[in-house]
Design a protein around this nucleic acid. Structure first.
Lengths: 207, 207
DNA sequence: TACGATACGGAGGCCCCCGCCAGTTAGCAA
DNA sequence: TTGCTAACTGGCGGGGGCCTCCGTATCGTA
């Protein structure tokens, strides 16, 4: 693959456009065959440009991921580190909940090349890291909170609300809940009965 | 179907056992065909007992759901309503994160019969409702927090950590984060710069 | 223009889900 | 015990999807 041939580029663009529409319509389950048919190319061609569904989804959501990274960059110098982080989390939530299939791309792959398992997540991780650091410095989040944690949480929320009538609104409700805390132990509210650590494993291993 | 014939019951039990193993091995994606093959029955038989993958998963996790409901019943009269709720959330997290595919069952169906869309979730909802009410009365959670919210949150966490090396531990980490709040606005910590409400929708609609 | 590299797409293999059908068997009644 | 009937069973075929191979068409360049 020295330089991409012109027809290949044309096809790539067309397939990508179709893929976007198809994913928007059918979510992450969109059929590669179907994309090929609509795009008027052979299924092998689709497969050549996007080896695997995941690659296709990553390409489809590439722009959005970049937009999120850019947003993180803008917010990096904000005066209120906490507000900046929350703003960004809100943006991520909106994206993940409104673009069907995006959450699936953000969830760690687990398959094969575990190192670069997930280009998108890594890219986001790098861009958002400063936001989290700033927020941690300001005491707005715990020191041990990582970007991966936050992304995982939002991703999970998006996945869990995917089928909801209004996924975006519902996702934001849950995000707000998680941001404020389901049941935070407030300083001065400690009645000593403790049990504040959520039990790590209940009675016995699930069989 | 007046009364189940004895052989049908035998088959059901065998298929269910195989299904459990298969789901444990391959998660929610487990193949019905494969289950039939291992169980030594025709695929039509499997299909008759479990019309659709979802039904199969519900049957597989039925025991676990009941166990969770029972746990909720035990905890209902606990002195510390907050601790009881957290305990139960921890148990739910452990189950959802350790039993692959269970989280998928808990996520609302969205398909077809929207009313009884999700028997498991409804069952849990009923059983856990008192726990949440007690916690709300004690001021441990907001008045507007529903069982569905909590289940959705935990389900999302489980989905997002499914591929993690140690899903249970990771899920519990995220649960703890959500319980304490990513960045709760603490009373007396209000510096007035506000922006505490997570923006509902960023600048523009995601295109 | 002619040639080599590159990209294309159809075909075939494999698996899965689904519905239909005729054969078989369990359970009940005489 | 012997039928009878309804329930249960499992194989078969259709419809798709994913993936790979390989002959062919096209592009870029000398």
């Amino acid at each position: 693959m020295t330089v991409r041939r012109a027809d290949a580029q044309r096809n790539y663009a067309r397939i990508l456009a179709v893929a976007e529409a198809e994913v928007a319509a059918h979510g992450a389950e969109a059929s590669l065959e179907q994309i090929a048919r609509v795009a008027g190319v052979g299924s092998a061609t689709v497969r050549r440009h996007f080896p695997g569904r995941r690659a296709m989804l990553q390409a489809v959501f590439h722009e959005r991921v970049e937009a999120l990274c850019a947003r993180a960059g803008e917010l990096e110098g904000a005066a209120d580190a906490r507000a900046a982080l929350l703003e960004w989390l809100g943006a991520l939530t909106t994206y993940a909940a409104s673009a069907r299939g995006m959450a699936d791309v953000l969830v760690p792959d687990g398959q094969a090349g575990a190192d670069h398992a997930n280009a998108c997540a890594a890219q986001i991780g790098g861009a958002v890291e400063p936001l989290v650091r700033n927020a941690a410095k300001a005491g707005a989040v715990g020191q041990d909170v990582t970007v991966a944690d936050l992304v995982a949480l939002v991703t999970g929320i998006a996945l869990a609300t995917e089928r909801h009538p209004d996924p975006v609104a519902e996702a934001h409700r849950l995000l707000a809940l998680a941001v404020q805390g389901i049941s935070p132990r407030l300083p001065g509210n400690d009645d000593g009965t403790a049990a504040d650590q959520v039990r790590h494993r209940p009675a016995q291993e699930v069989r």
